[in-house]
Amino acid sequence: MPAHRSEDEDKPCRACSDFKTWAKSQNKTTLNTPNKVAPVKPADCPLDKDDLGRSTWGFLHSMASYYPDKPTRRQAEDMSKFFNIFSQFYPCEPCALDFQEDIKKHPPKTDSRDHLAQWLCERHNTVNRKLGKPLFDCSKIHERWRDGWKDGSCD
Score class of each variant (00 low, 15 high):
residue 3 A to F: 14
residue 72 T to K: 09
residue 39 P to A: 08
residue 56 T to I: 04
residue 29 T to K: 13
residue 93 E to M: 13
residue 97 L to A: 15
residue 71 P to K: 03
residue 91 P to Q: 05
residue 56 T to V: 04
residue 110 T to F: 00
residue 51 D to F: 09
residue 90 Y to L: 07
residue 146 R to Q: 06
residue 96 A to E: 02
residue 61 H to Y: 08
residue 68 P to T: 00
residue 1 M to F: 11
residue 16 C to N: 11
residue 100 Q to K: 05
residue 16 C to L: 08
residue 154 C to K: 12
residue 154 C to M: 12
residue 127 V to R: 12
residue 66 Y to R: 06
residue 55 S to G: 10
residue 62 S to A: 05
residue 9 E to N: 09
residue 18 D to V: 04
residue 75 Q to H: 05
residue 26 Q to T: 07
residue 116 L to W: 00
residue 25 S to P: 04
residue 104 K to L: 02
residue 99 F to K: 01
residue 96 A to S: 06
residue 6 S to K: 09
residue 116 L to D: 01
residue 45 C to H: 14
residue 79 M to D: 06
residue 17 S to L: 15
residue 47 L to K: 12
residue 140 K to T: 06
residue 117 A to K: 05
residue 93 E to W: 15
residue 21 T to K: 14
residue 28 K to Q: 14
residue 70 K to W: 06
residue 22 W to Y: 08
residue 40 V to A: 14
residue 24 K to W: 10
residue 39 P to Q: 05
residue 85 I to W: 07
residue 114 D to Q: 08
residue 130 K to Y: 13
residue 149 W to A: 08
residue 24 K to H: 10
residue 136 F to K: 13
residue 119 W to G: 02
residue 15 A to I: 10
residue 114 D to K: 08
residue 53 G to S: 11
residue 31 L to Q: 13
residue 89 F to C: 11
residue 76 A to Q: 02
residue 63 M to F: 10
residue 11 K to R: 15
residue 10 D to H: 14
residue 97 L to K: 15
residue 25 S to M: 14
residue 27 N to T: 11
